[in-house]
Design a protein around this nucleic acid. Structure first.
Lengths: 157, 157
DNA sequence: ATCAATGCAAATCCTTTGCAATCGC
DNA sequence: GCGATTGCAAAGGATTTGCATTGAT
C-alpha cells in the first residue's frame, strides 16, 4: 500500500488546532501530525501503519504506539472513524461527513464509499422486527472492478 | 461466554463422516469432534476458543492450533462460515442454510440471524452503479434488546 | 507405504500497555 | 508545577506455522 504526503498549508494547522480544542483535547505535535496526514493523503482510508509510514522521518518519527493512542482518542471524539474493511487491521478515515458504507475490490483493494437510505430504513425495520433498537451498523460489499484497467492490483489501496 | 455440550447421537457421526467424505476431507477425530461440537452446542456461533473449551477434556483434548486448522478447512469447503461479529475474534457457525446476516445486542451479545432480499437486491444495484460486480457482502447490525429481561448481560452469547 | 493431519511451541500480526521522561497549559 | 502525553519496549490476544510424530487410506 503506497501512500504519499502532500504539502499541508498552515491554514490546515489552524483548522486542526481548532478541531482539537473543540473536543477538549490538548494540542500536541503527534495529534496535529496524525490529522495532517489523514487530511493530506490521497486515499481516505489508512491503517495505523500507513500513517506511521507517512509520518516516518529519521530522527523525528512518531511511535506507532502513539499513533494508535491518537487514533483511538480521535475515534472517541468522532473526528475519525474506524472500520474493518475485510483485512485484519483497522482502517481509519477522517470523518468528513456523515455515515457511509464501503465497497472494496477484492483484487485491487479499491475502496468506494456509498450511502443508501433505502437500505438504512430497511435495517431499522429489521432490527425492530427482531425486538431490537438499532444503534449502528456495518456493511461491507466485496466485489470486483468491472473496468479491468482501473483495477491495477495493489495500486488502489 | 458459556457453552455446553449436549449428547451427540451416533446418527450424527454418520452424517458427519458423510459430510467430510463429500468434500474429500479425510475422516479424522479432530474434524469429527469439531463438527459435533458445532452441531450440538446451543448457540450457533462460536469462536475457536469456545470450541476448544467444549472439547477440552483432560488427557484427550484437541490443540487450539488444530481447531483453527480444521475450521479453516471447513470454511474453505463451505461447511462452516466465519464472520466478524464486532469483537476481535472470528465467530464460526455450521452452514445449515444459505447466506444470512446478523444483528447483535451490544449489551448481552445475543445474535439474531436474518436475511433480507430487498437489501440484497439493492446491494447489487449499488455495486453495479459503482462499476463493480458484487461477490459477497457482510452486514452487521448492532443494537440493543428492547425486552430488558431477555437481555441478560453476557448470558446470551 | 505414503502423504496428510496433528500436537506443541514458537512465531506472527495487530494493538494495547507500563513506566520513565517530556510536554501542554 | 501538575497531570496528561509520549517513546520505547514489552505484553497481549488471536491466529498461523514449523517440525517431528502420528494417523488415514
Amino acid at each position: 500500500m503506497i501512500v504519499t504526503q502532500n504539502n499541508v498549508e498552515t491554514d490546515d494547522n489552524e483548522y486542526i488546532t481548532e478541531l482539537l480544542r473543540k473536543v477538549k483535547l490538548k494540542i500536541t505535535a503527534p495529534r496535529i501530525k496524525v490529522i495532517q496526514a489523514m487530511l493530506s493523503m490521497k486515499q481516505k482510508h489508512a491503517t495505523a501503519a500507513d500513517i506511521h509510514n507517512i509520518l516516518f522521518k529519521p530522527n523525528e518519527s512518531l511511535s506507532l504506539g502513539t499513533i494508535y493512542r491518537v487514533l483511538n482518542l480521535l475515534s472517541e471524539k468522532k473526528i475519525v472513524n474506524r472500520h474493518r474493511l475485510g483485512t485484519d487491521s483497522y482502517f481509519y478515515e477522517f470523518n468528513r461527513d456523515s455515515h457511509h458504507d464501503h465497497i472494496v475490490c477484492l483484487e485491487c483493494g479499491k475502496i468506494v464509499e456509498f450511502k443508501d437510505t433505502v437500505i438504512e430504513e430497511r435495517q431499522n425495520e429489521i432490527a425492530n422486527k427482531h425486538g431490537m433498537k438499532l444503534r449502528k451498523h456495518t456493511m461491507l460489499l466485496i466485489g470486483k472492478c468491472q473496468d479491468q484497467s482501473a483495477c491495477e492490483k495493489g495500486e488502489n489501496i
